[in-house]
């Protein structure tokens, strides 16, 4: 099936998406945007998190056809959306190790900060609970969100 969508500001069309394929497959396999990761296929790990019409979603649980006509922002387009501070904070705080979960975490952190510019620890835990990280033990991810929230004060 044909699916047209705007990804990171650019109009893209996929002619041969499968009817039961997901937005994640459209992004990764059809459009070559591999920054969005596939790690569980069940919405349990958050590695595939993107914005769909401005809403944070797990792209592995969105059908390709459901995204037809939508605006999608992936980690590759996040800098243009003003997320450089979040991304930089993740690097500076040491919140990245293997990095496989990082694109999803960066998306979720960006969404949190858009709704809550100065989150407390529990706000961060609740907002990022759907993003599994196996490397860091999460403490530096909490640090990174605080750092991004107030980039002038380093934790």
């Amino acid at each position: 099936m044909k699916v047209s969508l705007t990804v990171n500001g650019a109009r893209r069309t996929v002619d041969d998406a499968g009817e039961s394929e997901t937005l994640l497959q459209v992004l990764r396999d059809h459009l070559g945007l591999t920054g969005t990761k596939n790690a569980c296929e069940q919405g349990e790990c958050g590695s595939c998190t993107v914005y769909l019409d401005g809403t944070l979603v797990c792209s592995c649980l969105v059908l390709a056809g459901q995204a037809d006509g939508a605006e999608v922002t992936t980690v590759e387009g996040l800098s243009a959306a003003g997320a450089a501070a979040v991304q930089e904070a993740f690097v500076e705080a040491g919140a990245v190790q293997c990095g496989f979960c990082t694109p999803g975490l960066v998306m979720a952190a960006h969404d949190l900060l858009a709704h809550n510019p100065d989150p407390g620890d529990d706000d961060i835990r609740e907002a990022l609970a759907g993003n599994l990280c196996r490397c860091t033990g999460y403490q530096k991810i909490v640090d990174a969100v605080h750092r991004a929230a107030s980039p002038t004060t380093t934790p």
């Binding site: 990764r28 070559g32 591999t34 980690v75 991304q87 690097v91 040491g94 990245v96 694109p103």
Partner: peptide
Amino acid sequence: ATRLDGYPKVTGQFAYASDLH
């Protein structure tokens, strides 16, 4: 020292094995 592969990873540019084409 912060990671030398940090920026490629936070921007989605870092190519994992499953990203190869």
